[in-house]
Amino acid sequence: MSDSQFPSPEDFQDPLENYEPKTYEDPLEQALAEETVSAIRHEPYVRIPPDTPVQAAVEKLAGLHVACLLVEQEGKLVGVFSDRDVLSRVAEEYDQLKDQPVSEVMTNNPIYVYETDSPAAALAVMAVAGYRHVPVLNLDDQLVGIVSPQRVTAFLHRYFA
């Protein structure tokens, strides 16, 4: 210890010097914890404005063979429109709804993840909250993609080689 009333930098004891980083037995567990959502394929994705007619949105889902469209207004995510919305809100009244804007029947305020979140966060939205498609945003809240169960499955497969 130096004579000064304050300890010298040489006397400083790093509280983390004995810290041992967490070790993982399973490489997938490590990836779920330490990678980011960006490690899961999240492109391509399809965006539509909220005033898109329901019929055009249904045709886009069918024509592109995708299960979910991201509804975006001025760069911000405002909803999703998926096969499940077609089943739940559209199919039985299709003739009455097909000219209405998709914002009338989409799922508002979908749960999303940030691209910097861990892959485990995307998995939690699917397995715990029960949503199959998880929009991905950057930290400026701009849409950058969507994670689907197929894409998570492909991510898992990388660790099963």
């Binding site: 399973d26 914890a33 485990a120 966060a121 397995a127 029960g130 499955t153």
Partner: peptide, 21 residues
């Protein structure tokens, strides 16, 4: 898909079940 995601989540509860959603 959902059953498989739940199975993986159950396998790594320390990573998945603690996430902010």
């Amino acid at each position: 898909q959902k059953g498989l995601m739940e199975y993986v989540a159950d396998h790594f509860p320390g990573q998945v079940m603690v996430q902010r959603i």
